[in-house]
Simulated assay, not measured.
Amino acid sequence: MRVEAVHRDDKHRFSKLSVGEIRLIEGVGVEGDAHAGATVRHRHLVKKDRTAPNLRQVHLISREVLDELAANGYDVAPGELGENVTTVGLDLFELPTGTKLQLGDTAILTVTGLRDPCSQINGLQKGLLKQVLRKSADGTVVRRVGIMSVVTVGGIVRPGDHLTVKLPPEPNEPLELV
């Protein structure tokens, strides 16, 4: 398990720029990213309650999701779905809430929940929303556009850094929308 790519953008745009490294700041998020902050930064959440804690400081998506999209005819590069970290070798959607992810030597993220894809995703490629937001055979809504986390311990993260997982104590809580 490793970090494939890292991204940030100082503006509220849909996609983020790939960079050589990101600095994670405890309780804040990615230094220089528009979504960094102790309180909510996502526009729709700010409208609801600008004093709410920011549970969406760092967005992660796996290379495997991008590969699934490619297999279905959608060419999506790392960072284009707005993630800060693209991972390899880990099924992020199987992690419970509260999982600790160590990226590189020092940075630790705590998983808070699922990202809910919005219709802006179709601006990237028409029909993409249906690929990442669909219903399973039993009618359950399946969201495949990454997970959200907060920075528990700061540090520098670079492409190629190792990624380790520490599950929270049982009973585990499944990922919900944040």
Rank of each mutant, 00 (worst) to 15 (best):
Gly89Lys: 15
Leu90Gly: 14
Asp91Thr: 15
Pro96Val: 00
Thr97Lys: 13
Gly98Arg: 10
Gly98Thr: 12
Leu103Trp: 09
Leu103Lys: 01
Thr106Arg: 10
Ala107Pro: 06
Ala107His: 09
Ile108Glu: 09
Ile108Asn: 07
Leu109Asn: 04
Leu109Thr: 00
Leu109Glu: 00
Val111Ile: 15
Val111Ser: 09
Thr112Ala: 06
Thr112Ser: 12
Leu114Pro: 13
Asp116Ala: 15
Asp116Leu: 14
Asp116Ile: 15
Pro117Tyr: 06
Cys118Asn: 04
Cys118Asp: 01
Ser119Arg: 06
Ser119Val: 12
Gln120Trp: 05
Gln120Glu: 04
Ile121Gln: 06
Asn122Lys: 06
Gly123Ile: 08
Leu124Cys: 02
Leu128Asn: 08
Leu129Val: 08
Leu129Met: 06
Lys130Val: 05
Lys130Asp: 08
Gln131Asp: 02
Val132Leu: 09
Arg134Gly: 09
Arg134Val: 13
Lys135Arg: 12
Asp138Ser: 10
Asp138Met: 07
Val141Pro: 12
Arg144Pro: 10
Val145Trp: 10
Val145Tyr: 09
Ile147Phe: 00
Met148Phe: 13
Ser149Phe: 02
Val150Ala: 03
Val150Ile: 14
Val151Asn: 01
Thr152Lys: 06
Gly154Lys: 08
Gly154Ile: 04
Gly155Lys: 01
Ile156Arg: 05
Val157Ser: 02
Val157Ala: 04
Val157Cys: 02
Arg158Met: 02
Pro159Met: 01
Pro159Tyr: 07
Gly160His: 02
Asp161Leu: 08
His162Ser: 13
Leu163Gly: 07
Val165Tyr: 02
